[in-house]
Protein backbone atom coordinates (compact mmCIF):
# COMPACT_ATOMS: atom_id res chain seq x y z
CA UNK A 1 0.00 0.00 0.00
CA UNK A 2 1.02 3.55 -0.67
CA UNK A 3 -0.18 6.94 0.49
CA UNK A 4 -2.06 9.25 -1.84
CA UNK A 5 -3.99 12.46 -1.57
CA UNK A 6 -7.40 12.75 -3.17
CA UNK A 7 -7.21 15.85 -5.38
CA UNK A 8 -10.16 15.39 -7.69
CA UNK A 9 -13.02 13.38 -9.11
CA UNK A 10 -13.75 11.61 -12.39
CA UNK A 11 -17.27 11.30 -13.80
CA UNK A 12 -18.06 8.63 -16.37
CA UNK A 13 -21.40 7.26 -17.52
CA UNK A 14 -20.29 4.86 -20.26
CA UNK A 15 -18.19 2.21 -18.54
CA UNK A 16 -17.61 -1.46 -17.86
CA UNK A 17 -20.71 -2.93 -16.15
CA UNK A 18 -18.73 -3.90 -13.04
CA UNK A 19 -17.60 -0.29 -12.56
CA UNK A 20 -21.17 1.01 -12.22
CA UNK A 21 -21.56 2.57 -8.76
CA UNK A 22 -17.81 2.71 -8.14
CA UNK A 23 -16.42 6.17 -7.32
CA UNK A 24 -13.34 7.18 -9.30
CA UNK A 25 -10.99 9.72 -7.72
CA UNK A 26 -7.86 11.54 -8.89
CA UNK A 27 -4.89 10.75 -6.64
CA UNK A 28 -1.63 12.60 -6.11
CA UNK A 29 0.90 9.97 -4.98
CA UNK A 30 2.77 10.78 -1.75
CA UNK A 31 6.08 9.89 -0.18
CA UNK A 32 6.38 8.31 3.28
CA UNK A 33 6.45 11.81 4.81
CA UNK A 34 3.43 12.81 2.69
CA UNK A 35 5.41 14.88 0.18
CA UNK A 36 3.90 14.74 -3.34
CA UNK A 37 5.97 12.46 -5.56
CA UNK A 38 5.07 11.28 -9.07
CA UNK A 39 2.20 11.92 -11.47
CA UNK A 40 -1.49 11.82 -10.55
CA UNK A 41 -3.54 8.76 -11.50
CA UNK A 42 -7.11 7.51 -11.06
CA UNK A 43 -8.10 5.13 -8.25
CA UNK A 44 -11.38 3.39 -7.42
CA UNK A 45 -12.72 4.05 -3.91
CA UNK A 46 -13.37 0.79 -2.06
CA UNK A 47 -14.18 2.58 1.22
CA UNK A 48 -17.09 4.50 -0.29
CA UNK A 49 -16.18 7.46 1.93
CA UNK A 50 -13.06 9.06 0.49
CA UNK A 51 -13.21 12.59 -0.90
CA UNK A 52 -11.06 15.53 -2.01
CA UNK A 53 -8.43 16.65 0.49
CA UNK A 54 -8.16 13.30 2.29
CA UNK A 55 -4.99 11.25 2.58
CA UNK A 56 -5.75 7.62 1.75
CA UNK A 57 -4.01 4.26 1.43
CA UNK A 58 -4.04 2.57 -1.97
CA UNK A 59 -3.32 -0.92 -3.28
CA UNK A 60 -2.39 -1.71 -6.87
CA UNK A 61 -2.69 -4.22 -9.70
CA UNK A 62 -4.05 -7.66 -8.74
CA UNK A 63 -4.46 -6.55 -5.10
CA UNK A 64 -6.68 -3.67 -6.27
CA UNK A 65 -9.20 -6.07 -7.82
CA UNK A 66 -9.47 -7.79 -4.41
CA UNK A 67 -10.90 -4.65 -2.81
CA UNK A 68 -14.33 -5.03 -4.41
CA UNK A 69 -16.99 -7.73 -4.00
CA UNK A 70 -17.49 -8.08 -7.78
CA UNK A 71 -16.11 -11.32 -9.19
CA UNK A 72 -14.33 -9.30 -11.85
CA UNK A 73 -13.52 -5.61 -11.73
CA UNK A 74 -11.11 -3.83 -14.08
CA UNK A 75 -9.26 -1.59 -11.61
CA UNK A 76 -5.51 -1.36 -11.02
CA UNK A 77 -5.56 1.08 -8.07
CA UNK A 78 -8.06 0.93 -5.17
CA UNK A 79 -8.47 3.10 -2.07
CA UNK A 80 -8.72 0.81 0.97
CA UNK A 81 -8.26 3.22 3.89
CA UNK A 82 -8.55 6.84 4.98
CA UNK A 83 -5.59 7.91 7.14
CA UNK A 84 -6.44 9.48 10.51
CA UNK A 85 -5.38 12.96 11.59
CA UNK A 86 -2.89 11.88 14.29
CA UNK A 87 -0.96 9.77 11.78
CA UNK A 88 -0.96 12.68 9.35
CA UNK A 89 0.46 15.05 11.97
CA UNK A 90 3.21 12.57 12.89
CA UNK A 91 4.19 11.84 9.29
CA UNK A 92 4.26 15.41 8.08
CA UNK A 93 6.62 16.24 10.96
CA UNK A 94 9.13 13.96 9.27
CA UNK A 95 8.75 10.61 10.98
CA UNK A 96 10.02 9.13 7.69
Amino acid sequence: MKFGKVIGTVVSTQKDANLVGVTLLVIQPLDQDLTPKGSPYIAADATGQAGPGQVVTIVFSADATQAFPQRRIPVDASIVGIVDDCTLAQLSQGAG
Binding site: Q14, N18, A62, R72, P74
Partner: peptide, 25 residues
Protein backbone atom coordinates in the same frame (compact mmCIF):
# COMPACT_ATOMS: atom_id res chain seq x y z
CA UNK B 1 -3.66 -8.32 -14.94
CA UNK B 2 -6.51 -5.92 -14.08
CA UNK B 3 -7.03 -5.39 -17.83
CA UNK B 4 -8.25 -8.99 -17.98
CA UNK B 5 -10.94 -8.37 -15.34
CA UNK B 6 -13.72 -7.49 -17.79
CA UNK B 7 -16.24 -9.90 -19.24
CA UNK B 8 -14.75 -9.37 -22.70
CA UNK B 9 -11.07 -9.68 -21.86
CA UNK B 10 -11.16 -12.44 -19.24
CA UNK B 11 -8.53 -15.04 -20.24
CA UNK B 12 -7.41 -13.04 -23.29
CA UNK B 13 -3.73 -12.11 -23.72
CA UNK B 14 -4.14 -8.38 -23.02
CA UNK B 15 -2.43 -6.01 -20.59
CA UNK B 16 -4.24 -2.74 -21.30
CA UNK B 17 -7.98 -2.10 -21.57
CA UNK B 18 -10.23 0.90 -22.09
CA UNK B 19 -12.87 0.47 -19.37
CA UNK B 20 -14.65 3.82 -19.33
CA UNK B 21 -15.31 6.95 -21.36
CA UNK B 22 -14.63 10.00 -19.20
CA UNK B 23 -17.25 12.77 -19.09
CA UNK B 24 -15.76 15.12 -16.54
CA UNK B 25 -12.61 15.50 -14.45
Amino acid sequence: SSARQTDRTASSPVDLAIVSIIDLV
